[in-house]
Nucleic acid binder design. Structure first.
Lengths: 189, 189
DNA sequence: CCGCTCATGTAACTGGTTACATGATTTA
DNA sequence: TAAATCATGTAACCAGTTACATGAGCGG
């Protein structure tokens, strides 16, 4: 059987995200990559220096990124671009992340909290839920705004990503409303 | 001003989850705790030995758990129970996790993938989306089943947690349908 | 020139993973 | 009793965080 092209190493999610940013934004400095992540409202993407700089060095050693000194010859400033192997590995990750977690259940810390909500005095449980609803509403407004802004992009996928954030936030609000109802029902007893 | 009781150290999410399990299930061995996590379909909770055993030791050193040899004097078998300070810290975490991420945007790897979906040849993008829809439908069936099973629990919150999982899964399916439509629209051009 | 922010990095630490070792119990 | 599996643990590794160091450009 014709052996498929050996993929160097499956990239992690963060590595893939960096590859994706470089793929999309063309040559860019690590700092620009960091900014991209820090602007994201998803807390997963902190874009801390200690994560990004070693990561791009790693990716360059593995041949997925290539860098050269920026024309503006500031200190060590380097512009990174993606290599063909980098693109191949990015595609590989999109198709099948390591562990096959493509459709795994998303993690919601509020779910865990509600799971243990009986450990909280009733009144505190109540305020936790209503505070969270408030915060999520804020989130939803932001997400909707992101949706609107990306609605007319040349690429429809960034808009769909924003829409994912909005829909998830909205459904969590609705779910919290159910939790709230349950709390009130219990209070009534 | 009356200083609030000093909370030892804010616990992490995994620590809080372990405290929660011990709080709920009464005295139990580390192994039982692991089982609890491994049965969860959320990939976040792997319950690997290397995570749990050091963790309960840590919590005992910090005075949040207390252990004694099980009556069945097997090897080193220990039953852990939660202490009052453990309960206090668990409550503290439920109210306000470190970082105030109570209502932060949930992380969805499929969102990231779709964000970079243009990097994929059209046909592969299509099959990624339809495969994911299939997998999520499976997930949704499972989640609904969990919902049903927990519907008549004495504690309604485990049911609400299951419902969260179901709702999130369902909304992701709907969102993926939108992605699918978009792909077909583009194919038509 | 002083201080501020931009930008690139590094070092120490932390928490979780995989893989292994080993003792206890059950089952064939 | 031999093999399988349950149960407890540990060691090496790894990725990401916080905190720091440092240089470069710029505005007062």
């Amino acid at each position: 059987m014709a052996k498929k092209r050996k993929i160097s190493n499956p990239v992690t999610e963060l590595e893939a995200a960096v590859l994706g940013v470089v793929w999309r934004d063309g040559p860019c400095t690590p700092y620009a990559i960091r900014q991209h992540f820090r602007e994201s409202r998803a807390p997963r993407w902190s874009g801390s220096a200690g994560a990004i700089y070693p990561l791009v060095q790693r990716l360059e050693r593995r041949g997925l990124l290539r860098s050269k000194h920026s024309v503006r010859g500031k200190r060590g400033q380097r512009d990174y671009r993606i290599t063909p192997r980098g693109i191949a590995d990015l595609r590989e990750w999109i198709k099948a992340p390591p562990g096959g977690t493509n459709a795994a259940l998303v993690h919601d810390p509020l779910r865990t909290k509600v799971f243990f909500l009986e450990a909280l005095p009733r009144e505190e449980a109540r305020s936790l839920v209503s505070d969270s609803i408030g915060a999520l509403r804020q989130e939803a407004v932001q997400a909707k705004e992101d949706c609107r802004k990306s609605a007319n992009d040349k690429c429809p996928f960034s808009h769909l990503a924003a829409r994912n954030a909005f829909l998830l936030t909205r459904v969590r609000i609705r779910w919290l409303n159910e939790v709230q109802e349950e709390l009130e029902k219990r209070a009534a007893c």
